[in-house]
Each structure stands twice: as structure tokens, then as C-alpha cells.
């Protein structure tokens, strides 16, 4: 991984030094990225299974937008295409996963295009972005299409491939924020024992964004990446620790922990090499910060879901974290600090 670690300004000639942990399996960036894309497929398949064919269209649209943006910048910089490294496709998929399943696909294309050009392109391309590309795309779309982004939810139905035009229900977290725990529960689960609703949340039978509904499918992909050594557990565990702490202040701690994009964000977005710290200590601080911020935004902020902005805010701190937690020099043989 030549370009990971020290995020910073665009400079073609300087050498990027970074400190471990490096992936030592000898894999290239593109190989890793395509494995990440593979790991995202279970969640996409589940989404198509319960929400119909629209999530697939949205995902394709978002990927198209990202690919277009990436290609534009390759053209402007007069270099061979970088599409084969899989990062544009990955950003497109992740962006799509944060969108409501009833959204018009063209909005996703615009979002993907803006995300790649303004987050990655203008900063210099792969390895130079400060912020997570997919999340900036989502933030921009949230600002540009506020009504569509908050109302186009679809109630999940197994095997219903062509659902009617999106019915505007609300997500459990949104109802939790406005009307409280009982109402949130009633919105997607009727009857059963005290903790049975957790099973529905874990499986993914509730309204939500394309990629966030099924905790199990996310875990499936995450397990694959963990086994291949592509991601480590520091960041995700720290995020849940931080969120768990803050959610004790709420009326429904378990609903918080099992809901929403926390799982998607913790395993796939916060662990992005370019925008996260490179040392375990830094990663723990990063993760705890994200968890705390997510909880605070959910409970006291204006949005029902906070993981998106929490990660973006902590992205800003990453260079500082890398600086503070730099491992000490082992030898003094001419290695510059």
C-alpha cells in the first residue's frame, strides 16, 4: 500500500511515508478494492430481495456517476484510466447503500459524480482525499434533495421485486427520534417477545437505506474482509464502544446499536485506508470519537442518523491522530522523522 497513511496535499514528486500496519499479503490496491466490492454484494442481494429491483438501479446509477467523475479526472490529468483499481465502483456502491431504496436513480448519478470529482479528483486522486468519498456524496445529496432523501422509504417485503411507487414510511430511527420507542417498534414489528424485534433488525426486515437494513449481510461481508486481513477490528469495535456508551443515555439502547448505518459505516466506511489513521492507538481514538458523535447526533442533533457526519468529522482529525500516535523510531540510522 504505497499511498496510504499520511493523508495530505497533492504533490506528485514527494514520497509518502506511512507507518504500519501495512497489509503484507502482497496484494495490490485494486485486488483489495475488488474484494471489498465482493464483500458488499450480500447486502445488495438482500436489498433487492426485500425492496425490489430499484436498489439495483440506484447502485448502478451511483457507480455510473462515480465512474464518470473518475474518468473525467483521468482525462484532465492526461493519464491512463484508473477505473480498474475498483475504487470508483466501491465508492459508488457505498454511496448507493446509504440512499433510500425509493430514490430516483438519476439523483444517485449526480451524487456519485459530485462525490468523486469534489472529494477525490480536485485533491489529487487516490490516496489524497481527506474525506470519505461516499459519505461526502451522501451529505451533498442530503443538502440538495432533502425531501427525497428523507421520505422515499419502502416497506420491506420478501420476494417482492416490483413494489409499487415508494410509500413514504419512515425508518425506525426517525420514528424513535420524533415519537419514541413504542412507536418506532410498532412501525416494523408487531407482537412477539421482548427481544424478538432484534432478530428482525439483524435480519433486515425493516425500512431503511439500501445497504444498512441487514446487519447479518453486512457482517457476512465484514467477516470475509477480516479473514482476508483487509480490515482490522480496532475501528469497528471502538465505534460500537463509543456508541454504546452514549446510547445508555437514550430510552432504547439496543435499538440504537442494531439500527441504521452504524454497521455499514463501522465496517466499510470508517475502515477506508486513505481516510483513517494508520496506528492501532489512533484507530481506537478515531473509532471512539465516531461512536460518541454518532450517538450525540442521534440523540441531541437534528438528524435521526448520525454515523455519516460523525465519520466525516473524525476524518478531519486523522492527520493529527497520525501525528500524535506516530510510533517511536526504533533505530537512528538516518531515517527522517
Amino acid at each position: 500500500m504505497a499511498n496510504s497513511g499520511v493523508g495530505g496535499g497533492p504533490s506528485a514528486g514527494t514520497l509518502h511515508l506511512s507507518y504500519g500496519p501495512h497489509v503484507r499479503s502482497g496484494e495490490s490496491t485494486s485486488s483489495i478494492m475488488w474484494q471489498v466490492n465482493l464483500a458488499l454484494l450480500p447486502a445488495l442481494i438482500w436489498a433487492v430481495g426485500v425492496f425490489g429491483v430499484r436498489p439495483l438501479l440506484i447502485t448502478l446509477a451511483a457507480v455510473l456517476g462515480c465512474v464518470a467523475g473518475e474518468q473525467l479526472f483521468c482525462l484532465l490529468q492526461k493519464r491512463r484510466t484508473t477505473l480498474t483499481d475498483g475504487t470508483a465502483v466501491c465508492s459508488g456502491m457505498l454511496l448507493a447503500f446509504t440512499l433510500p431504496p425509493g430514490l430516483s436513480p438519476w439523483m444517485a448519478t449526480i451524487g456519485g459524480f459530485l462525490a468523486i470529482t469534489l472529494t477525490k479528483g480536485v485533491f489529487g486522486g487516490l490516496g489524497h482525499n481527506i474525506f470519505n468519498v461516499a459519505l461526502i456524496g451522501r451529505a451533498m445529496m442530503m443538502a440538495s434533495f432533502p425531501v427525497a432523501m428523507t421520505t422515499k422509504w419502502i416497506p420491506p417485503q420478501l420476494g417482492n421485486f416490483f413494489p409499487p411507487d415508494a410509500l413514504t414510511t419512515a425508518t425506525p430511527l426517525a420514528i424513535l427520534k420524533e415519537k419514541g420507542f413504542e412507536a418506532a417498534l410498532a412501525s416494523f414489528y408487531q407482537g412477539g417477545g421482548e427481544y424478538d424485534y432484534l432478530w428482525r433488525l439483524a435480519l433486515g426486515l425493516r425500512p431503511g437505506s439500501i445497504g444498512e437494513v441487514s446487519v447479518l449481510c453486512i457482517l457476512l461481508g465484514a467477516a470475509f474482509l477480516l479473514l482476508r486481513g483487509i480490515i482490522k477490528l480496532w475501528i469497528p469495535l471502538s465505534i460500537f464502544a463509543g456508541l454504546g456508551l452514549v446510547s445508555l443515555l437514550s430510552t432504547a439502547p439496543l435499538l440504537h446499536l442494531f439500527s441504521g448505518g452504524v454497521w455499514l459505516g463501522a465496517f466499510f466506511m470508517a475502515t477506508d485506508y486513505v481516510t483513517s489513521p494508520s496506528t492501532p492507538k489512533g484507530q481506537i481514538v478515531f473509532g471512539v470519537g465516531i461512536g460518541l458523535l454518532t450517538g450525540l447526533i442521534r440523540l441531541y442533533g437534528g438528524y435521526p442518523e448520525g454515523i455519516c457526519y460523525a465519520i466525516l468529522l473524525m476524518n478531519i482529525v486523522v492527520p493529527a491522530l497520525n501525528d500524535w500516535f506516530r510510533p517511536k523510531r526504533v533505530s537512528t540510522m538516518g531515517v527522517p522523522s
Partner: peptide, 19 residues
Amino acid sequence: LFLLVLPAGGFFTIGLIMA
């Protein structure tokens, strides 16, 4: 693209025109 009317859009606009 309502984003452009918001303050964030203002920053992006200035940056883009500068570029």
C-alpha cells in the same frame, strides 16, 4: 441542485471558479 444555494455550495462555487 439546492446544495448550491446553501453556504456549503457557496464555498464550492468559489473554489471551482477559482480553479
